[in-house]
Amino acid sequence: MSVTPRSSPAEIKAAYRRALLRAHPDKNLASAALLVDIASIQEAYRVLSTPALRAQHDARKCEPATPRPAQVISLEDFQEHAELDCWSHSCRCGGVYKINGEEMENGQHLVPCTSCSEIIWVGYELAED
């Protein structure tokens, strides 16, 4: 379905019906090859036509997405800088990934490069005291 956040209930219903017609194998033989899941169209209509469910859906869409790490790297592959309580690892762009003890204590695993937009997931386990 193709609707905007400001679509009225009538516009949502019209888009739902158009989507069903496009996906129905008796109405459009070409759609049979697409294997469109009519149940997913019905679920989308149910969510968008129910004010409470639509509000939840809209709230989830506005949440910032968690960045997807480019790769997983073990802390063992990082260079330790004991005097600074941090670890570093070279990025392929020439920049550096840096993580310190405080960040690890706070459970941070996603670490951005200091030079490019790439992010990695650093694997480590905190030692028991």
Results as ranks from 00 to 15, higher is better:
residue 78 F to E: 05
residue 128 E to M: 10
residue 119 I to R: 09
residue 88 S to I: 06
residue 79 Q to E: 13
residue 103 E to Q: 15
residue 83 E to N: 08
residue 115 S to V: 00
residue 62 C to E: 15
residue 127 A to I: 12
residue 111 V to P: 05
residue 48 L to S: 01
residue 105 E to G: 08
residue 78 F to M: 05
residue 128 E to K: 14
residue 125 E to P: 03
residue 111 V to E: 04
residue 124 Y to N: 09
residue 77 D to H: 08
residue 113 C to P: 04
residue 124 Y to I: 07
residue 113 C to V: 05
residue 30 A to I: 13
residue 97 Y to T: 12
residue 102 E to T: 14
residue 44 A to R: 04
residue 72 V to K: 13
residue 117 S to T: 09
residue 122 V to P: 08
residue 93 C to R: 10
residue 34 L to R: 15
residue 85 D to R: 06
residue 52 A to Y: 00
residue 90 S to P: 05
residue 33 A to N: 13
residue 107 G to N: 11
residue 82 A to Q: 04
residue 116 C to P: 08
residue 106 N to V: 00
residue 67 P to F: 03
residue 47 V to A: 02
residue 37 D to G: 03
residue 100 N to G: 10
residue 58 D to F: 11
residue 114 T to F: 01
residue 105 E to Q: 13
residue 47 V to T: 15
residue 122 V to Q: 02
residue 122 V to W: 00
residue 116 C to D: 09
residue 96 V to D: 10
residue 121 W to T: 06
residue 65 A to M: 14
residue 72 V to F: 08
residue 51 P to S: 06
residue 99 I to G: 06
residue 112 P to F: 01
residue 39 A to L: 08
residue 50 T to Q: 01
residue 76 E to L: 07
residue 127 A to V: 10
residue 115 S to D: 14
residue 86 C to V: 02
residue 78 F to Q: 03
residue 63 E to T: 11
residue 87 W to L: 04
residue 110 L to V: 01
residue 102 E to D: 09
residue 118 E to G: 05
residue 98 K to W: 12
residue 70 A to Q: 14
residue 106 N to W: 06
residue 126 L to P: 03
residue 48 L to R: 00
residue 101 G to N: 15
residue 105 E to W: 05
residue 85 D to Q: 11
residue 83 E to L: 09
residue 69 P to G: 10
residue 76 E to T: 12
residue 34 L to G: 02
residue 41 I to H: 03
residue 69 P to S: 09
residue 68 R to Y: 08
residue 122 V to K: 00
residue 52 A to I: 00
residue 40 S to V: 10
residue 74 S to V: 07
residue 42 Q to N: 14
residue 103 E to I: 01
residue 67 P to W: 03
residue 53 L to V: 03
residue 64 P to D: 12
residue 61 K to C: 14
residue 80 E to N: 05
residue 73 I to T: 14
residue 65 A to I: 08
residue 70 A to M: 12
residue 109 H to L: 07
residue 94 G to F: 02
residue 74 S to C: 11
residue 82 A to D: 08
residue 50 T to S: 10
residue 72 V to R: 13
residue 116 C to W: 04
residue 63 E to P: 04
residue 55 A to F: 06
residue 59 A to Y: 07
residue 56 Q to S: 15
residue 119 I to Q: 11
residue 52 A to T: 10
residue 90 S to I: 00
residue 123 G to K: 10
residue 86 C to P: 01
residue 83 E to I: 06
residue 66 T to C: 12
residue 39 A to C: 03
residue 101 G to A: 14
residue 40 S to M: 11
residue 52 A to G: 05
residue 56 Q to K: 15
residue 30 A to G: 13
residue 90 S to Q: 13
residue 46 R to I: 01
residue 93 C to V: 09
residue 92 R to G: 13
residue 105 E to R: 09
residue 126 L to E: 10
residue 51 P to Y: 00
residue 100 N to E: 12
residue 97 Y to R: 08
residue 33 A to P: 02
residue 57 H to Y: 15
residue 83 E to D: 12
residue 46 R to Y: 03
residue 114 T to G: 10
residue 76 E to G: 07
residue 60 R to K: 15
residue 118 E to N: 13
residue 71 Q to W: 02
residue 57 H to T: 02
residue 35 L to S: 15
residue 69 P to F: 08
residue 40 S to D: 13
residue 53 L to C: 04
residue 74 S to I: 06
residue 113 C to H: 01
residue 95 G to A: 08
